[in-house]
Design a protein around this nucleic acid. Sequence first.
DNA 1: TCAAAAGTGTTGCGACTACACCCATGT
DNA 2: ACATGGGTGTAGTCGCAACACTTTTGA
Lengths: 246, 246
Amino acid sequence: MGSVWSSPERPAYPHQALAVVLQVRARRLHAMLWERPNEPFAGAWALPGGPLLADETLGASVARQLTAKVEVSHLGHLEQLETRSDPGRDPRGRTVATAYLGLIPTHVDPALPDDTAWHPVDDLPTTAFDHGSIVRSALVRLRSKLSYTNVGFALAPPEFTVAELRELYVAALGYDVTATNLQRVLLRRGVLEPTGEQAPPGRAGGRPAALYRFVTPELSVTDPFAVFRPPSRRPGSEGRRGGLEG
Amino acid sequence: MGSVWSSPERPAYPHQALAVVLQVRARRLHAMLWERPNEPFAGAWALPGGPLLADETLGASVARQLTAKVEVSHLGHLEQLETRSDPGRDPRGRTVATAYLGLIPTHVDPALPDDTAWHPVDDLPTTAFDHGSIVRSALVRLRSKLSYTNVGFALAPPEFTVAELRELYVAALGYDVTATNLQRVLLRRGVLEPTGEQAPPGRAGGRPAALYRFVTPELSVTDPFAVFRPPSRRPGSEGRRGGLEG
DNA sequence: TCAAAAGTGTTGCGACTACACCCATGT
DNA sequence: ACATGGGTGTAGTCGCAACACTTTTGA
């Protein structure tokens, strides 16, 4: 195990694990990038990542690479995104890269190395390799999943008001969402629950906001697709829809 | 270009492109597998695929590998699925594999090599490596996309009756769907259109069925997720929903 | 008493399911 | 006529958006 076997008919390629780490900061969605000091793409910004080592999976690899930037325990969620294989994607020679999507909740602010910084995803600096387009893929994935799963938990602190949660969704989705309907949708789906506590009102007064939390800190599909679902959801079952647990 | 650069810190791995090719045959969804003659997993069934060559992308590679089994022109759709990297997934040594999902419409019945055969996805024989679980991933992907995109076009012949289309959906989804509602949903979404022709009635008589076709043979999202869509879809626009074309 | 902020009530609508009914053909 | 299969009409429901209104606080 760990020994590499290759031949002219089975060429081998260095493989990278990359991470698109996203966090909402100051009401905007940011991606974590580091500035390349050397060619190629010196001065351009790249995704954190690095080589897949001999005895690790891609998932383990990306987690390991990230420890150089942030504590992995800060990650609210990590999932595989896609694999890029264009032979020309690295001018130095061929590499294959598998990208992951990582999310960090707002209540942590990890200390970053000097060469690493957060950049708003809608105003990225010059990016290296194909990393700009990988970030765009990550955005599409996140935005979709915010609508039909509970991924929000990975962007939010353990407890929050609906107003705070709304800010996160607006930042991540890139368009406006009302607190009223956000609250109702997520409560109806059983994604959110009140903690029973209240947040103190701001200095200008106002009714104190109730605190909420996500019911489960694990990804689950909360809006099984609206059509072609198995016939006649059983009528007894509290109104929520059936399947997709397989 | 094409030369491989690796080092102890940047180990290289043979990379495979695999394809989960699915087709509805005799009212059941089948996967194309070939029987391995040699160890490891001699006698077990594996996904078609093979090594990523020096100057091709993964997409090109999987298309090339498939030509050994079926004409690529028969494929109605091909998309990247996921990448498997467990160091122990091949007992001979480490490989990384990227799986694709391919769909073949019912009206073609490609001649297969002797070692290759179709197997119902809900009754697979013993599978090699991690290929069984890759097939399951492909199933989840297909079933989801049938509900919120027009992928159906990749399983269906150019023209068909609603009854025939229903058979395909039932087979692919694994549960019952009524022709009435299938027709209405797909028409309402603008996925299907009548050709104007009719199919001749069966020997037992009955009203002749109208023929339909998919409006576009390219993947598009037809059911943008129901929630958190941008506020106030413009009211003039014929009832169909807005975004996600990016 | 007023402004500010949070939360609920209510209405309307679009999209879906289910089921009854009507239509067009062969025998 | 009548059996067979295709298609439409229609009613009920669910989930959501929009907006008015009520509640609870600080000043």
